[in-house]
Design a protein around this nucleic acid. Structure first.
Length: 559
RNA sequence: UAUCGUGUAGUCGAAUGGUACAGACAACAGACUUUGACUCUGUGUGUUGCGAGUUCAAAUCUUGCCACGAUAACCA
């Protein structure tokens, strides 16, 4: 008995999709196979909402010793482009470094899809319709009223077959004819009112070129794609719920797929607070120049998050943390920020960088002396070692770390107060100098040699510790601070562009960083003490380091 | 207005019909601190949207209502 005591400890909550899989595994619905897929249309960049789907599907496959396919749902050549194919592959590989790179294209199944359409025609389950798009819409009825049948609905199998071949051979104009499934024009589910399954589109396809002039519709193509690849659990978002009956209809009416080899399961897509997620609107922000492209660090795209400095692990952890359900919900952006802080905490070296410098002069420190002081790279992770930092008479400290008249509970530098310079000495403010406009330009201090870092001095304590760099040795840098582009995701989409935060990107050009930072590479991440986590950006020049702020630290000091 | 789906703490989310909330984020408080971060420790009484029914027992099953979402492309 007692040996089972540990069973309930460490219990992991299992999401509702995994429960379905468990049931299928137990019943042997698909044998012992689990196969999932992520099926984007290559018509834009992936965003963090897609990351949720990728992590979900990939994770499900992995957890169940199954297979995960990336499949391009490229059935509409008018919207698709090879550049999007490339960006999507890059993003998925980046997010899932251990993935076997199983990449598929719906367009490679066009031949089979055509044959299955012929099969449906022969079974009198599909017909060629001559109605125009407008007429089809009219005949379809409305949400509350049933539709009526097309006058072409009862053509003979012979005639339908004939016309379908002609459609394929390019004997008709775009829009002149379509192939429709023959189901029920009175169905309360509009997707079942004789949905169009093939249309004529004279457009060059990114993969098949000009081989086809007819293209299958998503609703018809998708179940076939899944079935061909052997997908067992076709996981998609909630808006396809109404399409499931047709998904099942297609499979059950094609002989090859009669035994229902796959099923569709829907989950709620991700919404993030303060974040615009609609592809259409992201596109607008890119095209109208509100951001600097799809990988602008303010964008919620995977490319943007990568450029900002997010790690794949952080995004994976985030996707794990938010869970999966069918309840439409808005996740707090703070969860995403936690994920990257949490991931970088033990990984990112701590360095000293002064974003808005003000000079600090130690009046009792020798003019030309340079002292090298040891600093741990990451106090939480001793394995990361330490480095030597030059200390001199003239330093830069943060402008906000000195106040002429301090507010209550301010324990940084002000006249008469003593603080620690990190890794160095206690210094006491004895004077300060203002320019003609009254801005403080220099702070004068004295230091106490007894208080050297690591000396074990315990004579007195200070409440504040400041970061600093040696004025003579430091390196100039540009730092870019990013903020949310919107206050809330719940805004009026018609004029959201006018409400975008104009200060979502702030560039600080006069920053000073530790000299050793020069030796680091693009993509390296750091914690600049008290400022948060940063990454060296891709357009860094030799003379001039450029940093993106990935995420700030939580600060409880209110001015 | 039709159909389908969804309503559990500030936010995500757990909970074989059996003591309502495991876990995470956020917030607040305290401890610690060579940065006020990190770390650690605390802090949640709420008619599980509302009402009825079934049951010894309902967040869970049934049903009515309410709210929200999706759907009337030859888009996906």
């Amino acid at each position: 008995m007692s040996e089972f005591n540990n069973e309930n400890e460490n219990r992991e909550s299992v999401n509702f999709i995994q429960k379905i899989i468990n049931e299928d595994l137990a019943k042997g619905t698909y044998g012992d196979r689990v196969q999932t897929r992520f099926p984007p249309e290559p018509n834009g960049y992936l965003h963090v909402g897609h990351a949720k789907s990728i992590c979900l599907n990939y994770g499900l496959a992995k957890k169940n010793k199954g297979i995960f396919n990336l499949r391009f749902d490229d059935t509409n050549p008018t919207k698709e482009d090879d550049s999007f194919v490339e960006s999507i592959i890059k993003d998925v590989k980046w997010l899932c470094p251990e993935w076997e790179e199983r990449i598929f294209y719906a367009s490679n199944y066009f031949g089979k899809m055509y044959d299955y359409a012929v099969e449906l025609i022969k079974k009198e389950l599909a017909f060629i319709d001559d109605l125009s798009a407008d007429e089809i819409r009219e005949y379809r009825g409305t949400l509350t009223e049933p539709g009526k049948e097309s006058p072409y609905r009862n053509r003979s199998v012979e005639e339908n077959l004939n016309l379908f071949v002609k459609m394929k051979n390019g004997e008709f104009e775009n829009g002149e004819k379509v192939l429709r499934a023959k189901i029920d024009m009175a169905s309360p589910n509009i997707n079942m009112r004789d949905p169009v399954i093939y249309r004529i589109l004279r457009e060059s396809h990114h993969n098949t070129g000009d081989e086809w002039c007819i293209y299958p519709m998503y609703d018809y193509a998708h179940p076939i794609e899944d079935a061909i690849e052997g997908i067992t659990h076709s996981v998609c978002t909630l808006e396809f719920e109404d399409h499931r009956p047709f998904y099942d209809w297609v499979l059950s009416n094609i002989d090859d797929f009669k035994d229902a080899p796959t099923k569709q399961i829907e989950f709620a897509k991700l919404f993030l607070s303060k974040t615009m997620m609609g592809k259409r609107y992201l596109k607008q922000m890119v095209e109208e120049g509100y951001v600097d492209g799809w990988d602008d660090p303010r964008m919620p795209t995977i490319a943007g998050l990568r450029r900002r400095g997010y790690t794949p692990e952080a995004i994976q952890n985030f996707c794990e943390a938010i869970g999966v359900s069918k309840a439409q919900s808005v996740v707090d952006i703070a969860m995403l920020e936690f994920a990257i802080r949490d991931d970088l905490g033990p990984k990112a070296p701590r360095t000293m960088a002064v974003l808005e410098p003000i000079k600090l002069i130690i009046t009792n420190y020798p003019e030309d002396e340079v002292e090298y002081l040891e600093s741990e790279n990451n106090p939480d992770n001793p394995d990361m070692g330490s480095r030597m930092i030059p200390f001199t008479r003239e330093l830069y400290i943060e402008r906000e770390d000195f106040m002429e008249i301090p507010p209550k509970k301010y324990f940084r530098l002000f006249p008469g107060n003593e603080v620690r310079l990190r890794n160095a000495y206690f210094v006491k403010c004895v004077d300060f100098i203002k320019d003609a406009e009254g801005n403080v330009v220099e702070v004068h201090c004295t230091y106490d040699p007894e208080t050297k870092s690591g000396s074990g001095f315990t004579g007195r304590k200070v409440k504040g510790t400041l970061h600093w760099v040696s004025a003579k040795h430091c390196v100039d840098a540009e730092v870019r601070l990013y903020d949310y582009m919107m206050e809330d995701q719940d805004y009026d989409k018609t004029n959201f562009l006018e409400k975008l935060n104009p200060k979502s990107k702030v560039i600080l050009k006069n920053c000073k960083v530790e000299p050793l930072m020069k030796e680091h590479k693009i993509g390296d991440r750091f914690q600049f003490l008290r400022h948060g986590y940063f990454m060296i950006d891709q357009d860094t020049r030799e003379e001039h380091l450029v940093f993106n702020r990935i995420v700030s630290l939580k600060s409880s000091f209110k001015k």
